[in-house]
Design a protein around this nucleic acid. Structure first.
Lengths: 209, 209
DNA sequence: AGTTTCGGAGAACAGTTGTTCACTGACGGA
DNA sequence: TCCGTCAGTGAACAACTGTTCTCCGAAACT
């Protein structure tokens, strides 16, 4: 019996996933540059040599994690896009969406926050490129909205990148807070909301004088 | 001859400085958690065992670097405070001051940006505490200014922390750009200026309706 | 069916790591 | 001047690292 032609590939991707998950688990308490190849395989329960069947080195594993993490982030972008509302309404809601996604994908967010300025150049560049793309897409979304009539392309981009940076900042703050302390979390979210309100005000008066 | 009573201590502090400088040099291309004790002593040119005369481990060296780095940052705070001007003028000028200090203390800024979310908990906490203090001091400065009459303590703090986060973000962006490309640098500074203008507008209308 | 492909095991390798130890020799107080 | 202090040495240690190699067995192809 059995010539179903996908068993091999499925098993391979299964241990690949196990490697990624193990790495993600270990990376909650350390940074990529200190993550050992043997450490990861030990966590998974396979031999060190098997690692090379999937990645050239831990750096390559890192870039794979970057792509995966930005997958989670794009879900966030779609969620924000889905809320059809005025510009200021969207801005306020984006804080809630951020908090929600941080709770959902803690490990991914932590990884991005940590490796954005981390010690592995290739990964750092990948993260940077990802955020740049994210900013571009957000800017395109904003440009399509009414309420940004009269805004220059550069100014929209500036605003989008500002949102991205603040999202990262609040996400990082949420990650630093204990995951089961809703009070600390609420304090952070509340501050983030006020930040967004201030930026909303700036946005409304951008074309004023 | 010789009974000048400070030679010993001076020599000790000299190699301590050498250790800190060597570490700072190495940390431009890697993160603290991957920094080896032997690596640092090799760079300085002393035996590995000598390291223990100064620090218990690389983590302790890290916290020492945190304090030192915040020394540079406080110079920045004083420079901004020195400029006696209106609130919006100060906000705009702070971008220039930031860029200036990043150019002056590249290694320190990079270290803080990297280890703020890095893999060594004790250092991460030290960096966080430092930024918190920095935010508090900035908030106190703002509160003393006219133009913040009617602002709640919390809102001033929110604004101060917002400045800090944005300063870190622009500093990180400047660090990512090549150090000898004034054009790329100018683009980043220009974006930062527009960000600040937008926040300035939000600030002006904070108490409006 | 027989044969090739390939993910994984296990052992071996040369290096490197952090930490300890007894030591040396210049400093610094008596 | 003598003597204690102490920053730095150099060797030794067990533990660990990344990488390479040959081999195995099950899946896939013909």
């Amino acid at each position: 019996m059995s010539h179903t032609p996908g068993v091999r590939q499925a098993q391979k991707q299964q241990t690949r996933r196990a490697l990624l998950d193990a790495a993600l688990r270990l990376l909650e308490h350390q940074s990529l540059s200190s993550l050992g190849l043997r450490e990861v395989t030990r966590e998974v329960g396979i031999s060190p040599a098997a690692f090379y069947r999937h990645f050239r080195d831990t750096g390559e594993l890192g870039t794979a994690l970057v792509e995966e993490s930005f997958g989670s982030l794009h879900g966030m972008l779609r969620a924000i896009r889905a809320e059809q509302a005025g510009p200021d309404e969207v801005i306020r809601r984006s804080v809630e969406v951020t908090a929600h996604y941080v709770r959902l994908h803690r490990a991914h967010f932590r990884f991005l926050a940590r490796e954005r300025h981390g010690g592995v150049r290739s990964v750092r560049n990948a993260v940077d490129a990802g955020f740049r793309l994210f900013g571009e897409e957000l800017a395109a979304d904003l440009a399509a909205q009414p309420g940004y009539r009269g805004w220059s392309r550069d100014d929209i981009r500036m605003l989008a990148d500002l949102f991205v940076d603040l999202m990262v900042a609040t996400a990082a703050a949420l990650l630093e807070a204990p995951p089961d302390d809703p009070q600390a979390e609420e304090r952070i979210v509340d501050t983030a909301r006020r930040r967004m309100r201030l930026i909303s005000l700036g946005r409304q008066h951008w074309l004023d004088p």
